[in-house]
Design a binder for these strands. Structure first.
Lengths: 244, 244
DNA sequence: CGTGAAGTTGATGCTTCTCAAGCGAAGTGG
DNA sequence: CCACTTCGCTTGAGAAGCATCAACTTCACG
């Protein structure tokens, strides 16, 4: 953990954090909220800094108080596979729950405030707050469905379909800046490629195609003005799914 | 549910079923085991019969007492994507938990005995058996990690790597018949292709390649005598992963 | 046997990856 | 404030991988 040299602490009360729908606190009794308040650490991570290292022993759960992060695994031929993007209020590290080593890495994409709680205390909170385990179970079940949809899409879609599908996914999970309608996250072309498991150049070309077809606007790394209907029909052109 | 015309009931006591590590019963108190015993239905499904229909309202949880099943989603251009194989003791339908409609279909691959319990009773059991929610949470978390590994592999691996990886996956999740060392499940080439999201012909060719290279033996649809080390090194040839 | 379903094999062409060169923006040091 | 450097993006050519399709073979089952 040497690389954490320039992290800085910040201070926030959990009671203020609840408005962010923090998954941990939402279903804890007030005494447990103050327990967590006293046992948590809050750190400021600088853009690009790595929070979780794949293969390291599981020690903490992390909660994004503000900021953005990417969660990724090592893949084939020195590639990364980004499996998820996270924003304010999201958990990091829950994939390591009940495992010895984290199965993923996580890095922040912009300066971010992260609340950290030791895994033992997280376990205690689960054991003592009945609905917390239940809600986490439902949360995991949702993530599982989403992960398996993505597995199917990565396996079966063409590059063009993957790009459309991924833009919609970012739109849904991260959202847009209401001021200018740009996706509220900055990703390099390589990172976009690592989400879809395709080559960087394909991302450039496909985005330019979509731009030429007027389905979106590009401003450097910012992507916005998504034509949701058009992208949806591209992503699901050959689909015979029931969307429940 | 018209197609269930030739299902037949069978009878089994939950207390006998516990030896199969039935996920539901393992952590229920004895009074709840008898509650479930009284509220479950047991049906015999014939080979090929569909148990769960993607898009139908969620009504039951299903447990395989004996048999094998495939769990799959509709995909692109009339393809299916098989997301999981299940055997004795496994749950079916848990992906629909807390959803209105099943996100998956499930069919049995051989004659199978299935125990069925209404979702409301399953909910009651969770609410009343504290460790059940916890264990289900851990179960979902494991499934999530596995699903995301598969997403990465489907996105990044070559066909040859996918085939090696998939054979190992079947070996681990389903196992082999100890008598003859053949994988203990019968899958058509199309079904194997639907697991990996590749073309049927590629499966044939690649299996023949592996056979020629003496990494396995083929007896019709039966595949056996896997050279685990060789297949592992094919699947992970270009991998830079930490395997925790 | 006869029929149909499933498996194999090969030819063809499209999709996608790889690699490399050119370009532009952003940051650095003088 | 300007040249220099660096990094990431773009674009294109060539190669490889893979899907599609069709013809043929094998197998299962009546």
């Amino acid at each position: 953990m040497k690389s954490r040299a320039f992290e800085r602490e910040f201070d926030i009360r959990c009671s203020g954090c609840m408005s962010l729908h923090c998954s941990l606190l939402k279903h804890c009794s007030s005494e447990w909220v103050s327990f967590i308040d006293q046992h948590k650490t809050c750190l400021l991570y600088k853009k690009g800094q790595q929070v979780i290292y794949e293969g390291m022993p599981v020690d903490n759960m992390y909660f994004i108080q503000s900021g953005k992060a990417k969660i990724y695994k090592k893949g084939v031929t020195n590639r990364e596979q980004i499996i998820r993007l996270a924003k304010d209020g999201d958990i990091l590290g829950h994939r390591g729950f009940h495992k010895k080593h984290y199965p993923i890495s996580a890095s922040v994409l912009e300066d971010s405030r992260i609340c950290i709680i030791a895994i033992q205390n997280f376990e205690k909170a689960i054991q003592s707050n009945k609905s917390l385990a239940y809600d986490l179970m439902v949360f995991y079940a949702d993530e599982l469905n989403r992960a398996e949809d993505r597995a199917r899409n990565l396996a079966q879609m063409t590059v063009r379909e993957k790009v459309a599908d991924t833009l919609l996914w970012i739109y849904e999970t991260i959202g847009v800046d209401v001021k200018n309608d740009y996706l509220d996250i900055i990703l390099s072309r390589q990172e976009l490629a690592d989400i879809m498991g395709i080559a960087k150049g394909q991302v450039s070309k496909c985005l330019n195609d979509f731009h030429a077809e007027k389905y979106l606007t590009i401003e450097g790394k910012r992507i916005g003005g998504l034509d949701i209907d058009a992208l949806t029909s591209i992503a699901q052109a050959n689909y015979s799914i029931y969307t429940g």
